[in-house]
Every structure is written in C-alpha cells, then in structure tokens.
Amino acid sequence: MKEILEIMENDARIGIDEIAAMTGIPESQVKKAIKEAEEKGIIRKYKTVIDWEKFGEEYVYAIVELKVSPERSTGYDAIAKRIAKFPEVISVRLVSGDHDLSLLVKGRTMKDVAFFVAEKVAPLERVQSTETHFILKTYKQDGDIFYEKEESKRLAITP
C-alpha cells in the first residue's frame, strides 16, 4: 500500500496497469488498495498543480499571521475552524513563535485580500492582531520547483 501511495503522490493520473507493472502487485489488488485508501480518507483528493501566473491569470496570495487569544475549553480550535470556513482562505495552521495562526489567503487583487482581512478576519472577537505578507513570487510549492528544472547533462550514449 505504501509503495502505491508513494507512486500516486507524484502522479495522480498514473494508470492502475502501470502501477501494477512497476510494483509487481496484481492489478486487481492495486485497484482494491486504492479504493480502500479513498474510502478511509488516506487519499484525500486528486489535484493538479497549476502555475496560474504562467497561464496569464492573476491571483494574489498572502500569508496572514494572526495573534489570537485562545478559548478556555477549546483552545485555538474554535477560532481556527471559524476562519477555515471562508473560501478565500486556502490554509490555516497553528504555529509556534511570535504569532498563533498562519493563513494562506487568495484573492483577485491586493485590495481584495486586504479588505477581506480587514473586514472579515481582523474584527473576529478573539483576533488580537493581523499581519499580511503578500506573496511576490513562488519558487517552490508542494515540493515542486516552479523555475527551470535541473536536468542531468548526460551524453546520449555511454558505456
């Protein structure tokens, strides 16, 4: 199962026959294992990594750091889950250090993002302060390098 997952993590579109050929596990078993992983939520979803900027679509991303005061019984969970509901929010993480929650926010323009933070996030009761860092350029995301990839500079035939 682990080997199948490792292969799929790098290529969500790979065929069952190919996974079977590479691992030596029969196709029927590969199929079963994938189905099981989907059902158990081990495979959460199949996604495509897109460089939108290259496509010509402008999106603005910002890392927004929040200081929040935790709640007595639920700690940070309640406020984090509340923030996670906004579709503008791509990710929400509790982090150590200077601030408490770190968000990734997506919008069409800088103004969009700034207003979203000012109007929707900052006024929340437990949020003490916000600090917005706009992302200017992505070099690497989810382990994928966005600039020219490094390739082996081999000759075509060697002994």
């Binding site: 490094e150 390739e151 082996s152 081999r154 000759l155 075509a156 035939i157 060697t158 002994p159």
Partner: peptide, 11 residues
C-alpha cells in the same frame, strides 16, 4: 530517445 546511457539520470 536514448536507452543507451550507462549512467544515472539523477543529478
């Protein structure tokens, strides 16, 4: 397309 290379394709 070369299957003629006697060295790793990894850097």
């Amino acid at each position: 397309i070369s299957l003629g290379v006697g060295e790793p394709d990894f850097v």
